[in-house]
Design a protein around this nucleic acid. Structure first.
Length: 332
DNA sequence: CGCATTTGACCCGCGC
DNA sequence: GCGCGGGTCAAATGCG
């Protein structure tokens, strides 16, 4: 599969939302935007023609670099996809009865899978009392594959006053644990899908350390049942405690990371499969352009939210201007 | 009363 | 071997 053809991996940054119809002209708009900014700047600071030329040159250089990075990213995606399909083929060739990663996936339990004799995992492995090392490695590796292949992340911006850790995504979840992790003072909540007892999907929800109004939901596994509720009904469903109403669509104040647009910005770090992205975005089928927009918005959002990036960007721009005009001071 | 949530204890992998 | 940290369990608690 050539995902790179489906996902635009361009790193052309856009600050603020850009509609899907604008995508084709996004890069020219960026340049126009930058040009407009410099025009504004020029009103305040006298800029020589050669400085403008230098800036334009710099812009072109950065654009070329962007193209190069895009090409590299595309190559990486292609290599990853090729490797992934090879691994999958190898697994199937080695163990034809291996369940498909899309079905019958067991959660990433380590404790009970190895020691326990009860439960679905034990039932699957009950006939393997004389398993060899090779077989064990085969058992372990598909599990790793499953885990890495089915983890997806969804970022949701919520009300700053909202302290709940509920991310409504159309499924019914049962909270089974909460933990404060080392790298983040905000507690992480652990959920299991409670709609179907056999559903192996788990969800971790945690606020980001940088922006505590942003919830990051990490999904593990895939649902083996359809989505529970239509989007519009979720708020009234009463499935989740009312104190944590972080609805996707029906609460007007629940801002997405990048508004306007869908309330959930999917950031699938482990899969480049577009289908998964659409799945993490609430089973709503999205055209490729929308996926691209989501990805690009996510990238831009991540970069613009990163204080180090914005600082470095500001320093680079101001440094460039000062470097071009070292003797001239900013006009009063 | 039944179900979901809370929360401290426990388990296990990993790094030193 | 030991400590740390993430993940899970299960008794206690709350709520409708």
């Amino acid at each position: 599969m050539d995902y790179s053809s489906l996902i635009n991996t361009s790193l052309e940054l856009k600050i603020g939302p850009v509609r899907a119809s604008d995508e084709a002209s996004a890069a020219p708009k960026l340049r126009t935007l930058a040009a407009n900014d410099f025009m504004e700047l020029e009103k305040k600071v006298p800029v020589k023609q050669e400085e403008k030329n230098a800036l334009v040159e710099e812009l072109n250089r950065v654009s070329a670099e962007n193209k190069k990075l895009t090409a590299m990213l595309t190559t990486v995606c292609e290599n990853y996809n090729a490797l992934r399909s090879q691994v999958m083929e190898y697994m199937r060739a080695k163990n034809p009865e291996m369940p498909s990663p899309d079905t019958n996936s067991s959660p990433s339990r380590k404790r009970k899978c190895e020691s326990g004799n009860n439960g679905a995992a034990a039932a699957n492995g009950s006939s393997e009392s004389s398993s060899t090392d090779e077989e064990e490695s085969l058992i372990k590796r598909p599990r790793e594959e499953k885990i890495t292949a089915k983890i997806s992340r969804v970022c949701v911006r919520t009300e700053p006053s909202d302290t709940g850790l509920i991310v409504k995504d159309g499924y019914q979840w049962r909270k089974y644990g909460q933990k404060v992790t080392r790298d983040n003072p905000c507690p992480r909540a652990y959920f299991k899908c409670s709609f179907a007892p056999s559903c192996p999907v788990k969800k971790k929800v945690q606020r980001t350390a940088e922006d505590q109004s942003v919830l990051v939901a990490t999904y593990e596994g895939e649902h083996n049942h359809p989505v529970l509720l239509p989007q519009a009904d979720q708020d009234a469903s009463g499935l989740s405690p009312s104190r944590s109403a972080t609805s996707f669509g029906s609460v007007p104040h629940s801002n997405p990371l990048t508004s306007p647009g869908p309330s959930v910005a999917a950031l699938d770090m482990t899969k480049s499969k577009p289908a998964t992205v659409s799945k993490t975005t609430l089973q709503r089928p999205k055209p490729d352009t929308e996926l691209q927009r989501l990805l690009v918005e996510q990238m831009a959002s991540s970069l613009t939210k990163d204080p180090t990036f914005t600082t470095a960007l500001a320093a680079a721009i101001s440094g460039r201007i000062l470097h071009q005009n070292p003797t001239k001071e900013w006009s009063k």
